[in-house]
Nucleic acid binder design. Structure first.
Lengths: 164, 164
DNA sequence: TTTATATGTAACTGCTCAAGTTACATTAAG
DNA sequence: CTTAATGTAACTTGAGCAGTTACATATAAA
């Protein structure tokens, strides 16, 4: 993968929003702010948030003072929910060009592979249900608290004492 | 792609070799023949077989009358063995550019994601141990026997009665 | 020893796709 | 009306894979 980082991006965004909520200030959570934490372009963030919104995980306010919020508690959002909200690429790709159907193996191999891949995908998904966005936030803040970290910046941290 | 088809390719090749072995003739299994079944270029097959050989799943004879054979029984080769023999791309990619370490979330998120992805990968691998190359051959031939298939061609089928 | 038939591998092409970026229309608070 | 936000199209860049050509190397068989 094929190095596509959309899962990491989406989890990061949701964790950021969940963490942001924990604070007391009600500054708007904009794609600009989130982009600073993720270290990328705001448009990339908006593209990801757009999908998360389509799947009902976040809502957005339009216009000035718009911004993003989780629609439900972070503890109720599993990483499978997130996984389902990113563009689905199959775990394993099939042959680029169809095998020779006149060969005993070539004829049925894709059917069999599909079954195997489906079972593998189920196992993966089951494992993703075991972690919630709230878990991610908690563990991430724990890493931060334990670590030897540089001076704070970028919201949701800015100007506030560590949350844990 | 993400769609990278190397797993499908490797399984196809091994199934082909396993099936070929079941026959009585001892024609050599060449990259040329396998390529016909997979419907691709022999060099693509050799590249894949090269990795499978490095991982001890097949052996090769050089020169004229060279060719490929499984090193052990197909029933003892799990799909995890195959998975381990293809170039390892992580299941999920991390952020393309490192998150802002000055943010509470950005600082620790990748550590946490690594743990989550590792557990997901374990689940996937565990699922792959449940199928062997022999299973794939058996199921594939069953699909062939059940199906309404075109006239035979391309070894390992050519000129032989259906195996199942 | 020569010839025919394999593999091994480098090097190149073409294609697809993701991330990043720019630009601009739209929306709504103040 | 002004300002600050999202939504989205369009483009650039870069990476990686499948496929291909070409050729060096190895070896069984004539």
């Amino acid at each position: 993968m094929s190095a596509n980082s959309r899962m990491s991006l989406a989890v990061h965004i949701l964790a950021w929003l969940a963490c942001d909520r924990r604070g007391t200030d009600q500054e708007t959570a904009t794609s600009q702010h989130i982009a600073a934490s993720v270290n990328t372009n705001p448009v990339v963030i908006r593209r990801s948030l757009g999908r998360l919104r389509e799947h009902g995980l976040v809502t957005v306010g339009q216009g000035r003072q718009g911004g993003w919020t989780l629609t439900r508690d972070a503890a109720s959002i599993t990483l499978l929910d997130v996984y389902c909200a990113i563009p689905d690429e199959p775990l394993f790709g099939m042959h680029a060009s169809a095998p020779d159907a006149r060969c005993h193996i070539g004829y049925g191999i894709q059917t069999v592979l599909a079954g195997i891949y489906s079972r593998a995908s189920d196992a993966l998904r089951r494992s993703l249900t075991e972690t919630t966005v709230a878990d991610v936030v908690r563990e991430t803040l724990a890493v931060h608290a334990a670590g030897d970290c540089p001076p704070r910046r970028s919201r949701p941290t800015e100007g506030r004492p560590p949350l844990l």
